[in-house]
Design a binder for these strands. Structure first.
Lengths: 226, 226
DNA sequence: AACTGTTTGTGATATGTATCACAATTATAT
DNA sequence: ATATAATTGTGATACATATCACAAACAGTT
């Protein structure tokens, strides 16, 4: 049940901002809103994909089950589109999404979305921009995962939590040790060892999920060198 | 110097096929064609990006200089767009492209490309589809790189050469050992050892750059298990 | 409050691959 | 044809991280 119509929604995407009243009406008629608690699945790998999902509020993880393990592809913070590639580039979800905190998402019918792409070039243009930025981000992440050793990989992610997600050098991790290991592509034991070492070296303070970055420059250096 | 006008080009992209005569004229006026020999750079990481590049014929590698090494992000076979994300998502090339064999590419002015996106929704739509498929492909590649051990990673790539690029179980690698190592993210010594082992086990025959796959199913199994 | 299940930390050991060194082979230049 | 440079293959060793085992701490349930 939608709390507000698309036209009076205060959390529109950059793409949707370009829509006229008529187009917002079209969107409103085939757009459903849902709230997810932490841990709930928004869409599942292997299932048919027929909606475009716009994450209005919250934080989610994209996960894929690979040959050897579950891997967290990336975390995504609202506002953003989820699963655009998997819905428009394929018919089956190539990966899953789950909420890491209470989140709200709008499910847009695929055909309506295509219609909006067709009738509003500015809408299309913003979708293209988002796809392009996502791919660049993904390339960067992949290079870090492949080239850096585990110290550098973990440091990069801790910094990303601080700079991109919480805008603070002190935060509560939204992941347990196993999930952090899935994000950084290592084992949970290795995560424990490194958080321990970083704490001993007074670069961070790690108390359970509570992280405080003490020596940001040193952490940055570690993330650069790998 | 263009050998033919855009309207009479027989190698149009799926996006360009949607353009009308008028739009093809617009494209023709700001599109320059170039031929590249093997080894030549098409665009360079760190340089300003102001063109959209359409690879008409040939095979290229996308490379990025990371914290520890050069990494080949992926190979791309014509026909396809190169560097869409890096031109539309940023102003600087995030990675480089070089020809692996004689190739031809069309350089399209950025503003003209944006104009075509604006005036032709079907054109935009095909660009969106290509971006989505690219991202899914990139996710798959990243998962393989991160989760598989080196045997599985090399097997995957040898199969990709056979199935996607040469459509043959026997082919001439377009890469030397060092470049193959960059593609698979390992060292050139490890590449030599594994090609040696695979040859000893009669799964492939490797003679210099000449590769012949003898036991496709076994190679497939190795690539799946990692 | 007690019990059970889950998560986390640490020690010990195994494994896969990088690195280094060097020689052999191949390609290129003269 | 010869010399030089680049590429490749192999052996030996080092190193980073996975895996296994187990205990301690924490969270959830009764």
């Amino acid at each position: 049940m939608k709390s507000t119509s698309c036209s009076s929604c205060l959390l529109k995407s950059k793409a949707v901002i370009n829509l006229g009243d008529n187009e917002l009406d079209i969107l409103d008629k085939s757009c459903v809103q849902a709230t997810f608690d932490r841990g709930e699945t928004i869409f599942k790998q292997g299932a048919l994909s027929s909606n475009i999902i716009y994450l209005q509020t919250g934080l989610i993880k994209l996960m894929i089950k690979g040959p050897n393990r579950v891997q967290i592809l990336r975390l995504k913070k609202a506002p953003c589109y989820l699963g655009l590639p998997t819905t428009m580039g394929d018919k089956i979800n190539n990966y899953s999404a789950s909420a890491l905190e209470k989140s709200t998402a709008c499910f847009i019918d695929m055909n309506t979305f295509k219609e909006l792409l067709r009738i509003n070039p500015a809408f299309s243009y913003e979708i293209i921009i988002e796809l392009c930025k996502n791919e660049l981000e993904q390339f960067k992440r992949c290079v870090t995962l492949v080239q850096n050793q585990i110290f550098g990989r973990l440091a990069s992610n801790l910094i990303s939590f601080a700079d991109d997600i919480y805008s603070s050098h002190e935060y509560e991790l939204p992941l347990n040790r196993n999930e952090l290991a899935d994000l950084v592509c290592t084992s949970r034991e290795t995560i424990s060892r490194i958080l321990s070492d970083l704490t001993k070296e007074r670069i961070i303070e790690a108390n359970g999920k509570h992280i405080k970055i003490i020596n940001y420059n040193m952490l940055k250096e570690i993330s650069r060198k790998g």
